[in-house]
């Protein structure tokens, strides 16, 4: 994986962007984000946090109330069409043209991105193969499964080799095998130098694909950093999942700051079964977003979940 320092070129800069709707709702409240070329950034946050609104302002679909968006040196607010030549997008709730065949769909959208006919055809074949859709190339899109359509939508973002991919929950609705297939493809694309920004609800997806992770809550980035950086903000590094001590028979999870505390707890309570692991991105997420670990601390270095 690359880090911002390896590639100084700025792929995207969002400066203090705000989105306030006519009814006064402020969906995005001053987000600053700079993404280096070749970097992969995931956007995590609860429903309604402003992830999609933020991404739609980056893709030029939505005009910010205030702030600036710059994509590879182009002011995306002043010249959205030029900015869009550098972006491949998978919107969250986009539909496909069901009467087209899979290969036609990709080829025609490749041509709309400015590819010559032969180039659109060859890229279409390659992308369909990469997404495991070669056998569906000649099928009408309406006959494809929901997961296959979702993969086709990712293909529509990839065709034309745009240097920046903006994907809004790209793997929602995909089975685990298809999801990993998409991850592998996105890893290859990023390794080849493409910049990736995507939103997701899957922590594992964020861990697998991102150089940095941005946590958004209530229209603001509340944390931004690499996975170790975010984990370091969560002092309770050890997670103990255990079942059945003398008093309690159900499964419970506790967090501890030091490993010795875990050992001590196990010795004292003698659980029937237990599992120790380091805290995950999900734990960090809950900690920072404050949805789960809010008030369960018991003052002795343990937090129950």
């Amino acid at each position: 994986m690359t880090t911002p320092k390896d590639k100084p070129e700025i792929a995207l800069h969002a400066g203090s962007i705000v989105k306030r709707y006519a009814d006064g709702t402020e969906a995005v409240r001053g987000i600053n984000l700079t993404v280096a070329g070749g970097e992969a950034i995931s956007i995590l946050g609860p429903n309604g946090a402003g992830k999609t609104t933020f991404l739609r302002m980056l893709t030029t679909e939505l005009k910010p109330t205030a702030g600036e968006v710059n994509i590879f040196g182009t002011d995306a607010i002043a010249d959205p069409r030029k900015a869009k030549t550098k972006i491949g997008v998978t919107p969250q709730e986009a539909g496909v043209f069901e009467t087209l065949k899979g290969n036609e769909h990709l080829e025609l959208f490749g041509r709309l991105k400015g590819l010559a006919k032969n180039e659109a055809r060859s890229q279409s074949e390659r992308i369909l193969a990469d997404l495991g859709l070669s056998e569906s190339a000649k099928k009408r899109v309406g006959d494809l499964s929901g997961g296959q359509r979702r993969r086709l939508l990712i293909g529509l973002a990839l065709i034309g080799n745009p240097p920046l991919l903006i994907l809004d929950e790209p793997t929602t609705g995909l089975d685990p095998v298809s999801r990993r297939q998409v991850w592998d493809l996105l890893k290859r694309v990023v390794a080849a130098g493409t910049t990736l920004i995507f939103s997701t609800h899957y922590m594992e997806e964020a861990e697998q694909l991102s150089d940095r992770i941005a946590l958004i809550n209530a229209g603001k980035i509340v944390a931004l950093g690499t996975l170790p950086e975010l984990q370091s903000r969560f002092p309770l590094r050890y997670r103990l999942k255990f079942t059945g001590d003398a008093v309690m028979r159900s499964t419970k999870t506790l967090f501890f700051e030091k490993f010795e505390e875990v050992q001590s707890f196990i010795e004292n309570t003698a659980p029937v079964e237990y599992q120790i692991s380091t805290s995950s991105l999900e734990d960090v997420y809950f900690s920072i977003v404050g949805e789960e670990l809010s008030s369960n601390g018991n003052g002795d270095g343990r937090v129950s979940k």
Binding site: T59, T60, E61, R81, K82, K84, T85, I87, V89, P91, E93, A94, G95, V96, F97, F109, L112, K113, G114, L156
Partner: peptide, 14 residues
């Protein structure tokens, strides 16, 4: 209303 228009909206097409 089925989101197909979004596919054009994100392209560099007038």
């Amino acid at each position: 209303f089925t989101g197909r228009l979004k596919l054009f909206a994100v392209l560099p097409v007038a």
